[in-house]
Structures are given as C-alpha cells and as structure tokens.
Nucleic acid binder design. Sequence first.
DNA 1: CCAAAACATTGAACTAGTTCAATAAATGAA
DNA 2: TTCATTTATTGAACTAGTTCAATGTTTTGG
Lengths: 193, 193
Amino acid sequence: MSIKLLKDNILKNAKLDNEELQTFCDAFHPKIIAKKQYLLNQGDVCKFEGFVTKGCFRVFTLDEDGKEHVLYFATKDWWITDIDSFTNQNPSFLTIQALEDSEVLLIDHADKEHLYEQIPQVEKLFRVMTQKTLVSLQRRMIANLSQTADNRYLGFIEKYPEIAQKLTNLQLASYLGISHEFLSKIRSKTASK
Amino acid sequence: MSIKLLKDNILKNAKLDNEELQTFCDAFHPKIIAKKQYLLNQGDVCKFEGFVTKGCFRVFTLDEDGKEHVLYFATKDWWITDIDSFTNQNPSFLTIQALEDSEVLLIDHADKEHLYEQIPQVEKLFRVMTQKTLVSLQRRMIANLSQTADNRYLGFIEKYPEIAQKLTNLQLASYLGISHEFLSKIRSKTASK
DNA sequence: CCAAAACATTGAACTAGTTCAATAAATGAA
DNA sequence: TTCATTTATTGAACTAGTTCAATGTTTTGG
C-alpha cells in the first residue's frame, strides 16, 4: 500500500513518532497519471513535490535546439519535483513525464511549508534527503567527466537494472549524453561479452 | 572582517536573531592555509565544513587512472566540504587544495550537530543552502550533457570571471572535462572574437 | 487485425576532442 | 639572477562519438 511505502521512505532519514508520521502522510494526495502524460511542463510553476509509488517518470529539459536532456529517471520510492521552481514558485526548467501508467503522492507548496512549521523534524528530513541527492549527483558529474560512454552505460545498467529495462534507447541515450545510434552500437558491442 | 562575511552569507538563507547569529559564528574557527596546501586528502574522514573568507580552493577527485577531476572551485563566500564524508564520517572521495594563500572558517562535526539542536533555524539554513547547491549542479549537469566544450568554457568565464583568472589551463580543463591542450586551442580560437 | 508511427540497427562520412611530442613561456626557489 | 620545474602552445595522427540515411522491427491505436 502506497502510504506504507512513503512512511518507510521517511523513516530512513528522520525520526518521526507515529502521530507526526500520520500528520506528514495526511498532507499528501494520491494522483494517477497515465503513460506519456505530463506531471509538469517546462515553463509552468511546479506546484508539487511528489513521491512515486508506482510506475516510472523521466525528468528532462528541452534545450534551445529542441533537444531533450534527461536529468534523471524516477521509479517507485523516488522523489520528483523541480526543486528550484517548487521552492521559489518560479517557472520550471524541467518537464516531468510518466513513462508508464504511474502513481504519485503529491504535496503542495503551502502544505509543505506548513509541515516544516508543524514538525521540526521535517526540516531535517528534507535536509538529509537533499544532501543525499546532491552527493549522488556529484558522483554522476565526476563519472561523466572521467568515463567513456561505454562505461557510463555499463555503470547505469549495473546500478539501475530495473529502470534500465523500462527505457527506450532514446531515453537512456539522452540521460547518458550520447546519440541513440551510438548507444545502439555500444549495446551490440557489449552484449557479446 | 571575516565573521561579518559569514554573518551576511547566513542571513541570505535564514532568519537568525543577533544572539543566534553570534552562537552560530562562535562555533567556527579560522584557519590559514598556504598556497598548494591541502585542507582535505582523499581517503581521510572530512572533519570540517568550511566557509572561505579569502583565497581560492579546488575540490577534486583522483580517478583509478590517476587523473584529477575538479568538482568545483571555491573563493570568498563559498562553502567547502565533502558532504558525504563529513555527514557520515566515512573516508572522503574528494581532495581540497588551496590554489593561493587562503583563509577559511571551520566548524567540526560535533559542533555542527550541536548547532542543529541549539538553533532550529540552522536546520533550515543548511537545507536551503544544500538545495541551492543541488540546483546549480543540476544546471551544470545539463549544460555538460548538451553543450560543446567551447560553450562550456565561454559559460564558465562569463559566470565566474574572477575565478577564471585565478586558474591555470590544467585546472580549468579538468573542471570542464577536456584536455588542457584542447582548452588551449579553444582559447586561441575564441580570443580573436 | 492492420496501418501508422515510433523505435532500433547498421554503415559511411564526418567532427569534436584526445594523445603525444616538441618547443616556448612563465614561475619559483636558491 | 639563474636554473629547474611547471605551464602553455601548436601540430600531426588518432579515436570516440555524431550525423545522416536506409532498412528492419516493435508498439500502438483505431
């Protein structure tokens, strides 16, 4: 059940008692979103922070040349938002799209601010979560600076095998920062090993 | 004066009253560090979080091939640490070196934990700071996926002109993820414009 | 179940960026 | 000031990755 998933996720990063946990979870509302539908469109203000309970999303941006670049994918147990847009309520830089029929638990900006005031531990919870996200992005940054496309591909499928199998070549190539044709060549090369 | 710089930096991200501000600042200790000296060595546990008040640092990692990759540079008014190592007190992935004679204000792990308990607003302060750092790293990630080396170079010198002039080609190339020879060629090409 | 659309594969020609090597210029320590 | 070391520049040969185009394969919606 999806609220259970949220509770477990929270307890990994902060100590809330049962009552706080309940108050926290009550601030979230489930939303079902069909394959290919958008949860956020680039340019709109991001009105939510979301916790994925089913399915898979891609978070990407369109550059000036109309090319898409995937910042990350999010499956069950991941959080999704455009932090900058959500925190400062300015137009988003990112688009969030469901890759399959999915479900999320959403909290809006005012309710989250309210939670920060109501439950001091929530401040810590999101500090710790944000730190962890930052650390993994720092590692990815270094990996992108230092590794060849082959190794980034192999690293991805090793680290996220269940996500990898949900993705098309185009989507994964866009995350890796290479053309989908080249990814196809990497695949046929590494498949034989 | 360096404490003033720290106070101003904090007040950008949280509301502390004068007393809290003083308590906060008292937890920091100044350290002078000479050019080329190390503040943190890869593999050691990071015992501090630092606020730069003078000079310039590079934060980098050595990969298995012995190549250095710069995660970021930090001058006056920037924070430096290996968050993962500092937060969890495990061996650091990063090295931090002074590029010129520098000064930092340092806080150790126990004192920071103590501040979190003493001043609830500090939790928010670091949450907001970490969020901002994450947002700018997300943008850099996208820029690295979508832009050519020329544009990343031009973007850097436009965004950080005062840092750019402190760096050697080797250091900047390592941040941009290109060879220093190629940076040299980009420079001679773009200088003529 | 079929047609249309989206996706994957492959090859050929190309380009951005690397590597290596040689030389010049700048910096630093004595 | 000098010598040694580090840094920057440039060119030539190379390689990783792109682009374009053609063909085959899978998915999707009606």
